[in-house]
Design a protein around this nucleic acid. Structure first.
Length: 567
RNA sequence: CACCCCCUAGCUCAGCUGGUUAGAGCAUCUCACUUUUAAUGAGAGGGUCCUGGGUUCGAGUCCCAGAGGGGUCACCA
């Protein structure tokens, strides 16, 4: 493995720590009794503390030094004085271990006394120093100046997502985002549990990927020798549980969809699904309003949040706008009474692309998505979707051709989707059969028929209202993030190509001098085989060219030497 | 899917119309320094300019292909 200069120096320091009898990775627990943020908030001097964390910076001034120690809660300054740390004759711990062998990024434990420096900074005077973990790789050197300006920030999205651990260490605001995510989920869980609703787990591997219109990931079960699908939704399973007699069930469901990736889509994403018996979609709108206000307060301490420069107000009530009215208002098209051909003509007129596989539902969705969605900034319930778009939804009690469904839009993005659930088994079977027809027309996202789900409905499901909330998107909205990747610890990326690194000793075994081996590897001949397979003349020419290009301080290779390696 | 852009030191970035030995700040190393906080002062080291071809006397720079990433768009939540 080729290591950078800084890494080699750190590895050497690691070896020297061992020589001094210091284990750089000790097994023993280090019981801390104080943390940076609480300590500095209620700061008192002359307090004995035991803390642990990562050294983020060091300012060494001869016999005294300051360092920043970062723990889970934040940073605190520590002060190391040679004679305080080493009261006896032996000053090794300060002069050698702290000043020479420790680096930015190392994890240490300290025991000491709190005090305030001349400049008024709350600090800890270190009396004991324990190495807890030596860091081999240098952290990016992010610095913040007195005006709060960040310098040399670690910002490359690829590096940040691939090495989230580094991102979290050097970019504290990233931690805040994920803490907010946790609070969002906790607030929802608390709200539901208080109502007596049951948190449940349902299958991720499904023989029939139902409950939504999407392309699934397919896998294979060897023992049963059948295809299985990663769930695209858990809806049909939760409804089975309502059939079984629970009044309310919810699940934070990781769903998987084999579709595009962009700043609002990741192949796996989290949806909160909630089903409550004996309720309808009007009740659900009230419930969601109250829930989101609570969630917003749990993150921000108030019921507003800033998003893309807009102030989003999560306090109820939210506007409730039937889809037909929304489309009429924004496009002038009245979808009421238009058949499929009429809708297709309207799309063409509005400049919206259509194709032959699109049924009535998809055509309406196309107009709505194009003309209405971007304008829905404040939380808005769009209600009463055409029946063709909603195969799992109960028909509207008053409006023929529509269903009792709503979606919640915030900042132009769908955040929640809810119905009065269809519980008529005969109608549900017909709706599935319509989906099969769509599938035959080439709509590869149309739903599959789930016979067992129909059987469950035939046993009788109470009137039920259900909702799905896109947790990732909601977190984006509450943390003012523009990309879903910023609210997922490990967003999906192309697999990284790792060069596992050449085996230098194997190269040396061929007779390659140790001073040449790393360069031979760096020049592309990183295995004994690759050396053996090359022609000596060409290899020599390439290596001498590499030597010249990189100005290596080595004698040019002679033909006889190279021939000896290849032989 | 399509189009556009990016890739140079550990990090953030310069590098002009192709032309000496590829630069800066931070980081690293050496030395000095007992209350600093983007510590300071003096000095030093560190590069497969993403990869592979091509054009050229000469390529970080121009051309072609590829990898990776970002953006817009389509599909989707």
């Amino acid at each position: 493995m080729i290591r950078s200069e800084q890494e080699r120096i750190r590895l050497e320091s690691l070896a020297q720590l061992r020589q001094l009898g210091i284990d750089p990775y000790p097994a023993a627990a280090f019981p801390v009794d104080a943390h940076a943020q609480p300590l500095s908030e209620g700061f008192e001097v002359d307090k004995q503390v035991c803390m642990a964390g990562r050294i983020l910076s060091r300012r060494i001034m001869g016999k005294a030094s300051f360092a920043e120690l970062q723990d889970a809660t934040g940073k605190i300054q520590i002060y190391l004085n040679r004679d305080e740390l080493c009261p006896g004759e032996d000053k090794t711990l300060y002069n050698k271990v702290f000043k020479k062998l420790l680096d930015r990024g190392d994890i240490v434990g300290i025991k000491g006394t709190t005090f305030t420096t001349q400049t008024g900074e709350p600090s800890v005077l270190v009396k004991e120093l324990t190495v807890l973990s030596k860091s081999i790789r240098p952290l990016p050197s992010v610095k913040t100046d007195e005006d709060g300006q960040v310098h040399d920030a670690f910002t490359d999205p690829e590096l940040r997502y691939r090495m989230r651990y580094v991102d979290l260490v050097v970019n504290p605001e990233v931690k805040r985002t994920f803490e907010a995510r946790s609070r969002v989920i906790q607030a929802m869980r608390d709200a539901f549990t208080e109502q007596g609703w049951l948190e449940v787990d349902t299958p991720v591997l499904q023989a029939i990927p139902g409950g939504a219109a999407a392309r699934p990931f397919e896998t294979h079960h060897n023992a049963l020798d059948i295809p299985l699908y990663m769930r695209i939704a858990n809806e049909l399973y939760l409804k089975r549980l309502i059939v079984g007699g629970f009044d309310g069930v919810f699940e934070f469901s990781r769903n998987f969809r084999n579709e595009g990736m962009d700043r609002t889509h990741n192949p796996e994403f989290t949806v909160l699904e909630l089903y409550v018996a004996y309720q309808d979609y009007h009740w659900m709108m009230d419930t969601i309003e109250q829930l989101l206000e609570r969630v917003c307060k749990s993150v921000h301490g108030q019921n507003t949040a800033t998003l893309d420069g807009n102030t989003i107000n999560f306090a109820p009530p939210y506007q409730r706008l039937p889809m037909r009215d929304a489309i009429l208002e924004r496009s002038g098209v009245d979808i009421d009474g238009l058949d499929e051909n009429g809708l297709r003509a309207a799309c063409v007129e509005l400049g919206i692309e259509v194709d032959a596989s699109m049924g009535k539902g998809k055509l309406v969705d196309a107009i709505f998505g194009e003309k209405c969605e971007p304008h829905l900034i404040q939380p808005t319930f769009i209600t009463d979707y055409p029946v063709e778009m909603s195969p799992l939804t109960k028909s509207h009690r008053e409006k023929p051709g529509y269903t009792e469904r709503f979606e919640l839009f915030i900042n132009g993005t769908e955040v929640a989707n809810a119905y009065s659930e269809l519980n008529d088994p005969i109608v549900q079977r017909e709706r599935f059969e319509d989906q099969v027809k769509l599938s035959e027309r080439g709509d590869d996202e149309a739903m599959f028929i789930d016979q067992d789900f129909l059987r469950a409905l035939e046993y009788g499901m109470p009137p039920t209202s259900g909702v799905g909330i896109g947790v990732d998107r909601l977190v984006m909205m509450l943390t003012d993030q523009r990309s879903i990747q910023e609210v997922l610890f490990f967003p999906q990326m192309r697999p990284e190509v790792f060069r596992t690194g050449p085996d230098l000793s194997a190269l040396e075994a061929l007779g390659i001098p140790s001073e040449w081996a790393p360069h031979v590897a760096a020049a592309g001949f990183d295995t004994p085989e690759s050396v053996k397979e090359s022609k000596p003349a060409a290899l020599r020419e390439k290596l001498n060219g590499f030597r010249k290009k990189n100005k290596l301080d080595l004698a040019a290779l002679q033909m006889e030497e190279v021939e000896a390696w290849v032989k």
